[in-house]
Nucleic acid binder design. Sequence first.
DNA 1: AAGTACCC
DNA 2: CCCG
Length: 212
Amino acid sequence: MQEDLFGANREESIGPGAMILRGFALDVGLLVGIAAVAAQAPFRHMLTPGGKQIGVEMTNCGAFGWVSDRRGYRYAPRDPLTDLPWPKMPDLFLSLATRAAQQAGFSGFRPDACLINRYAPGVKMGLHQDRDEAGFDAPIVSVSLGLPATFQFGGTDRRDPVARHTLQHGDVVVWGGVSRLAWHGILTLKPGQHPETGATRLNLTFRQAGYR
DNA sequence: AAGTACCC
DNA sequence: CCCG
């Protein structure tokens, strides 16, 4: 039984039911876990339904994985590349996500999906909503590792004003409740080197994708 | 469609 | 040319 090392040094509210837990996710085991997942389900570019390549490289772990292709956005229990189930979600990931949600005021978070995004310099993710899940009662927990990035966080209307927040290695963003369908994105990643990840930003996004 | 293009 |  190992001690968990999670705990935010600082919490910042970024909206109703939305906060950043600074330095909450500094356990190097997270990077080991990502490497283990990627060894079974490699990072790959996905296509939008319109046939354009998504710049971020993605893989998944857990019971469900987020996938996109010409048929649309959806959650799938198997990796389309291998037809194998997605790798099991590491216990460390589950523990982190549950504790972060709890810290942000969302008890009972039981993620069944973890999307892993890998950003290289020059890559961005446009404003979007996470709305492919079967229900929206559970929050979103988003973990930043490696190179810093500028996170855009707006409201539930596409036209709502968007604030910018720099996310550093170890920061966790949690949003739910009235902010669950908030529009969000990541600005173009700037070049840089991080001691633990090199010229890379990694993001873990935990969700309850399935019905309960 | 998490994408791009174009305009101001 | 880049940015919003």
